[in-house]
Every structure is written in C-alpha cells, then in structure tokens.
C-alpha cells in the first residue's frame, strides 16, 4: 500500500532526453567547479588578481559559480518544459 509514489506518476516521453541533458549540464558545471578548486589549491596567488572593478578573482569566480548554477537551472527548466510539452503532445497524437 505504501509503495506507490505519493504523487501520481505521469507518463513522460521526454524523460530519457532530459536525463541526458542533465548529465551534460552536470559535467559542464563540474568542470567550472574543478577549475575553481584547482586554482584555489595550486595557484592561490592568481586568486588575488583584480579582475572586475578592483575585485579579485576569488570573489568573482566564487560569486560566478553561484550565479552560473542559477542560470543553468533556469535554462534547464525552460528547455525541459518545452521538450516535455512537445514530446508528450506527439505521444498523445500517436
């Protein structure tokens, strides 16, 4: 009785497509994140260089990572929603 999902399960023709896109975006973010960790650990001095309006790379890169995550999230949601509508409508039309 308790093993069905709490929410109603919907058929989703786009799920494979979304999963693949998700993994791609994950690796993209992962690379940028590793770049940050790499510079912080192995080239700390570069982090001190001012890059924008006198503010150093560490602050800009750090805030950049946060903003980048938000932007990627919005893009992902937009693309997925579009694709879901498109693919699920096709499925229904069949």
């Amino acid at each position: 009785m308790l093993h069905e999902p709490a929410a109603k399960q919907e058929k989703d023709a786009a799920s494979d497509w979304k999963a693949k896109l998700g993994i791609k975006l994950f690796w993209l973010y992962c690379l940028v994140y590793m770049g940050f960790v790499g510079i912080a650990v192995f080239a700390t001095e570069i982090m001190k260089k001012p890059v924008l309006a006198g503010t150093n790379l560490a602050i800009i890169y750090g805030i950049g990572l946060i903003v980048f995550a938000i932007i990627l999230g919005l893009v992902y949601n937009h693309v997925c929603t579009k694709k879901e509508d498109e693919m699920n409508n096709k499925e229904e039309a069949k």
Binding site: S15, A19, G22, I66, A69, G73
Partner: peptide, 17 residues
Amino acid sequence: SIGYLAGWIVALFVVAE
C-alpha cells in the same frame, strides 16, 4: 557557500527527477 550551492547542481541535474 560555494560548495553547498554547487551540490544542488547534482541534485537538480542528476538526482531530482
């Protein structure tokens, strides 16, 4: 802050759906 937020990328792109 950076790490806690980056974790959400894993949650959203890999695990959520």
